[in-house]
Simulated assay, not measured.
Amino acid sequence: MERNEPPDPEVVELAHRMFDLARDGDADSLLAYVDAGVPLEMTDPDGNTLLMLAAYHGHADVVQRLLDAGADVDRLNDRGQSPLAGAVFKGEDLVVSLLIGAGADPDLGTPSARATAAMFGRDNLLT
């Protein structure tokens, strides 16, 4: 494919499907695609990874399975936000716990998860 050619519509459709599976919490389907070769670190137009979308939408099972598959716990989106900060913002206690347990850095990103917790009075999520 030449650089100026539009992407294959089937590839675009597959990417949209992957992001929807992460948002909707369909761990089995999403991980089947990842196991079949869909990139674990693929991003949407805003730089959100599958892990970011699952974390933000509170899908602990998807988050755990993506972490088990090797997802980068600290990958920032294009706005400099981390999956941990997104989970803190949404008050997703279990997801926060999983991300911290996987080594997520609470001081990474803008705003960081620590700053987000302080902003919304959720400091207890990071302890």
Score class of each variant (00 low, 15 high):
residue 61 D to R: 06
residue 81 Q to C: 09
residue 74 D to M: 00
residue 16 H to F: 15
residue 30 L to E: 07
residue 117 A to H: 06
residue 13 E to M: 11
residue 3 R to I: 15
residue 9 P to I: 14
residue 97 S to G: 07
residue 118 A to K: 14
residue 121 G to I: 13
residue 1 M to A: 13
residue 45 P to N: 06
residue 9 P to E: 09
residue 6 P to V: 10
residue 26 D to H: 14
residue 120 F to C: 08
residue 68 D to W: 11
residue 16 H to T: 14
residue 95 V to Y: 01
residue 112 S to Q: 07
residue 76 L to K: 03
residue 15 A to W: 11
residue 77 N to Q: 04
residue 25 G to H: 03
residue 31 L to T: 12
residue 1 M to L: 09
residue 62 V to D: 01
residue 64 Q to N: 10
residue 112 S to C: 08
residue 84 L to D: 03
residue 80 G to D: 08
residue 1 M to N: 11
residue 73 V to S: 02
residue 60 A to T: 07
residue 104 A to L: 02
residue 111 P to W: 04
residue 85 A to F: 01
residue 73 V to D: 00
residue 100 I to C: 01
residue 55 A to K: 04
residue 24 D to L: 12
residue 42 M to A: 07
residue 96 V to Q: 00
residue 109 G to M: 02
residue 31 L to Y: 06
residue 91 G to I: 13
residue 16 H to L: 12
residue 25 G to V: 02
residue 20 D to P: 05
residue 52 M to V: 08
residue 34 V to P: 07
residue 77 N to C: 04
residue 85 A to K: 02
residue 99 L to C: 00
residue 74 D to A: 01
residue 8 D to L: 05
residue 87 A to D: 01
residue 105 D to G: 03
residue 43 T to N: 04
residue 13 E to P: 12
residue 79 R to E: 15
residue 81 Q to F: 09
residue 5 E to V: 12
residue 9 P to Y: 13
residue 2 E to M: 14
residue 48 N to E: 07
residue 106 P to G: 03
residue 53 L to M: 13
residue 7 P to K: 08
residue 108 L to N: 08
residue 33 Y to E: 09
residue 42 M to K: 05
residue 74 D to Q: 02
residue 68 D to P: 13
residue 127 T to N: 09
residue 90 K to E: 12
residue 115 A to F: 09
residue 121 G to V: 13
residue 42 M to V: 10
residue 76 L to C: 08
residue 106 P to Y: 01
residue 100 I to T: 07
residue 51 L to N: 07
residue 119 M to F: 15
